[in-house]
Design a binder for these strands. Structure first.
Lengths: 310, 310
DNA sequence: GTTCTAGTTTAGATAATCTAAACTAGATGC
DNA sequence: GCATCTAGTTTAGATTATCTAAACTAGAAC
């Protein structure tokens, strides 16, 4: 079976739906002559008369009624298809998943800057420690840490963070620190990530950095999430080696202080991954550009000042 | 919303279904270059990437998967539409309705000639005294009598029949008829059609034709169907003014005889009506031609011979 | 009877669609 | 590692489909 020409079917469908050649032509944006020729061609191809010409009117034959009933569904579906795509593109917001700490202490705070720039662009931020499957639409963008980014097709370095010892001013009390090593005499809060992430810098490494001895068995408090460790420090429970990007608000608010600004870098970088299709969502490209922009600035702020001890 | 070009949608649909540009091109009967350009044009029109080019492979993006799922249904429906039409044309036989007597005593007998000519062409013959609605597919062809044909869009004169007095040879027995008027002394079977048909010739008219007196109140046997009256005559119940076309088999078989071949014409003709679409069914035109052909011959046989008394 | 309008047909203009050729890039085999 | 093959892309221009313009038919309206 040979399929007749698509334009011929389309012309006939329009005639059936509109009732006259002239109104069908108007709807298709062509002349009645074009419609007439297309329908004639369809009749020749199929070997049946679809329209009965009665003076200056046309009327469907029973073959025409039969065929039109079916192809109308087909063309309606094609039109619907394009609408479905348009709706999906315009209505679906952007979905970003990130490590929970990154959501709690970084991107979740920065997103208000995005809102100011693009008030009508919805972005949904989800804390999720496992890598999402982008192609399945689980996420448009993903912020992750280290080599885990390689499971995604498209990714780029976001920023590299540094850690610095920080504590609540209440913890210090009336104590006066004479040297960086004095920090090690206070309760120390430890961070231990899941095994598939490179181990974050530990107090033992910091002690070695400042030329001090350090007990191999610290206070016994361990946190899986950096953000939880930071919150404990804010509550006066000890010193934390906090990521610079995650404690900026606390430093500004005075709920954390840095007695000695001696920083260590994280062993790996944060990465932004994305689904190609997401770049074609409304504001998709803009969001990508914005995240890269704030990350670049963060890299500058997180790194120690050029004259700092490294 | 502007619909993208149909050929572009079709090319993309084929790629999605076939998996590669090359196999899609083969199926569409074009070059891969054509498919590549069509898909590119579709992407430009819609403003999204539908296929991700990975080296020499292509892979659907999530937009592409979404759109393809929908348009595949549309194109499948269009293909199905043409199949539906083809099936309807090839599988549906021809339907002829006719007056019951015509079915019983004429066309129902002649149809075997059609079968010999076209063994694989199904024709269904239905006795029906009311006019069918052709456009609704109630009938492809219709044999009717007189002005009733005018309710149809397409119709033509079929044949004009004549009546002749006929009886079973058993009725005559040892009686010897000396003159045509002697017939009137036998039991006479009457035919009275429904009021919307012109009254068929009556015995009183025949009597007048042969110059004989005739009682205004004959035997009291009246038949609504000509075929029933003929059957009664075959059974020896009396003389019938039988239509020539309907008693030919009986004359040939000797179950009826015509002592005096003095004929009277029916006041109106038989007509063939038809639905335009029926001519496009397989064998539709052939059937029309055949019916007209046997009718023409019937007209010749039904009319009295050129030297007969009229 | 004249004018208007829907539809058709024909000729040829226009645009869409296609092929050919040259190219890129990855896969395969030696 | 290199040559060959194959899938896909791009560009230029050939081909075909589709369209418009013009002339026409035929019926409706005034």
């Amino acid at each position: 079976m040979t399929m007749p020409p698509l334009h011929a079917l389309q012309a006939f469908e329009a005639v059936g739906r509109c009732g006259t050649m002239t109104t069908a032509a108007k709807e298709l944006g062509v002349t009645p002559s074009a419609v007439s020729q297309q329908v004639r061609k369809l009749e020749e191809c199929l070997g049946v008369t679809l329209l009965e010409r009665i003076g200056r009117r046309v009327e469907m034959t029973s073959w025409g009624v039969l065929l039109h009933k079916e192809i109308a569904v087909g063309f309606a579906q094609l039109t619907h298809s394009v609408e479905v795509l348009e709706r999906a593109r315009s209505q679906s917001g952007i979905v970003l998943t990130a490590l929970s700490s990154v959501v709690n202490k970084w991107i979740g705070r920065k997103i208000f800057e995005w809102k100011v720039l693009h008030p009508d662009a919805n972005v949904r931020i989800i804390g999720k420690d496992e890598e999402p499957r982008m192609a399945d639409g689980q996420s448009d963008f993903r912020i992750t840490y280290g080599k885990r980014a390689e499971v995604h097709t498209h990714f780029t370095v976001l920023y590299t963070d540094w850690v610095v010892p920080a504590c609540s001013p209440r913890l210090l009390g009336m104590h006066k620190l004479n040297a960086p090593a004095d920090i090690l005499t206070f309760p120390l809060l430890n961070i231990e990530w899941e095994s598939h992430y490179s181990r974050p810098p530990q107090w033992s490494e910091w002690a070695q950095l400042v030329g001090a001895a350090c007990n191999d068995k610290p206070s016994g408090l361990f946190f899986a999430l950096s953000s939880n460790a930071i919150d404990a420090a804010v509550n006066g429970h000890g010193f934390v080696l906090g990521q610079v990007s995650m404690i900026e608000d606390e430093l500004n608010a005075g709920t954390l202080v840095v007695p000695y600004d001696i920083r260590m870098p994280l062993p790996e970088s944060y990465y932004l991954a994305w689904d190609r299709a997401a770049l074609e969502k409304p504001y998709g490209k803009e969001f990508h550009t914005w995240v890269m922009s704030i990350a670049k600035k963060q890299s500058v702020r997180s790194a120690p000042k050029s004259n700092s001890v490294v």
